[in-house]
Design a protein around this nucleic acid. Structure first.
Lengths: 240, 240
DNA sequence: AAGTGGTCTAGACCACACC
DNA sequence: GTGTGGTCTAGACCACTTA
């Protein structure tokens, strides 16, 4: 943890617990400099993080204010929670979530998968299919492709724990970012089967490539969910 | 324009025109310091912008590389193009785009609109409905709510030009960020009418609140489009 | 006029990758 | 070990809001 991440964490916590209330001014940057005993640049970096999360906004000449909670983004701050980013669930729902591994195989990649993962057709990938249920109701199901050469020791028990934690802790690799495509589709046979949804139910589809810090795609996933059950949130704020 | 924005613009251009090629190393930060005659912090800020756009990635000890184009985000850098952010079209398609203003009224806001725009029920809002067509095919239609007190001089000709440019240039206000919710829905009567889509066609819906730098919501919009015609892209990369 | 946040500097030290 | 990017400092100047 760097200093500015620590400070961001502290201030984020004060906002979420209501110590700093919506639409009120935060202490100014000089006061934070005194409290945390760091330089102002470091404070600014911490605040920029919170700005990009939609928690606060600051205005030259005017001060830094806590935003209205309706504009807050979901904060996916820690790696082990990254797994839930695709599900877009509020944190308090995690405990009601269960999942089943429906398939776990090794394949040569199809053309689309090659393109998304930037690999040759001779490079094998893990293919896995799994379904998440919320309060025992089917919620989303996901197809996942992971290059074998990047994650050489994937096992069922690893998958059941957390793939991201395995990537981070065992393989010492870190996530650099994601690229998502989102669209609506007709329900197909798999949707009927796994989401138990009606004929012609609209399906929300997320295709996502996750890449490591070094830019190598580590995962290509296709997530499907029924109708309005799942709603994807995206916040973008100018932190500069 | 600040120095780091200028530098980011220059480097972005070199990447998009192929001067810096995908998967090759960029000059290191010290070389950029010499070329642009600024401090390294300023170079870092410029690079951070490009990292958050998914154009490059940098790795401590290893250097900064141009990412594979398949992972690049769409860059909505200028305000007048912000209007097209909701449409998620590649830039070269803008010329094939036309739109019709279907409705332009003033209303007292409904409960949802009050909540999204954080206003009281007595504060009037503009309500407008418009449809965008791509190559004369219906593409998306949008319902828009804008508080009258924030944009007091909205006229039909302003709308036809660019609402965002009016906000920026005439009212001297700047956009702070957006908050989107995305889901899939059944086609309703309006969809049949405006998108000329078949019964039960899946519809992609984007509900978006756009707020100003001072945090005040300035626009609540609901965008609907048919099936796979429109695909929303979202890139998130860690720039810190 | 006073106080705010945004930018920028010139240097320092450190973590990490690669040879 | 050498070179890379990431963090951090202590100060400066500037743009802006508010009174």
């Amino acid at each position: 943890m760097t200093k500015y991440e620590d400070i961001a964490y502290t201030i984020r916590d004060r906002i979420r617990t209501g110590i700093y209330e919506p639409n009120t001014l935060l202490p100014n940057q000089s006061e934070f400099v005194e409290e945390f005993e760091v330089s102002r640049m470091t404070i600014k970096k911490a605040l920029n993080l919170l700005i990009s999360e939609g928690l606060i906004n600051s205005l030259r000449g005017s001060g830094t204010r806590v935003m209205s909670p309706s504009l807050w983004g979901r904060n996916v701050t820690t790696l082990d929670k990254m797994e839930f980013d695709k599900l877009q669930l509020p944190e308090d729902q995690y405990e009601n979530l269960s999942f089943e591994l429906l398939k776990f195989e090794v394949q040569f990649p199809q053309a689309t998968t090659q393109k998304q993962l930037l690999i040759a057709k001779e490079q094998p990938v893990y293919y896995l299919k799994r379904r998440y249920s919320l309060n025992d109701q089917p919620y989303v199901y996901e197809e996942l492709y992971i290059p074998v050469f990047l994650v050489p020791e994937l096992t069922e028990s690893t998958i059941e724990h957390s793939i991201y934690q395995h990537i981070a802790n065992t393989l010492k690799l870190s996530i650099g970012g994601t690229n998502k495509n989102i669209y609506a589709d007709f329900a197909n046979e798999d949707d009927h089967l796994y989401l138990t949804c009606a004929e012609n139910q609209p399906i929300l589809v997320t295709e996502q490539v996750t890449y490591l810090k070094d830019g190598k795609p580590v995962e290509y996933s296709i997530c499907r969910s029924a109708g309005k059950q799942r709603c994807i949130t995206s916040v973008s704020a100018k932190s500069a």
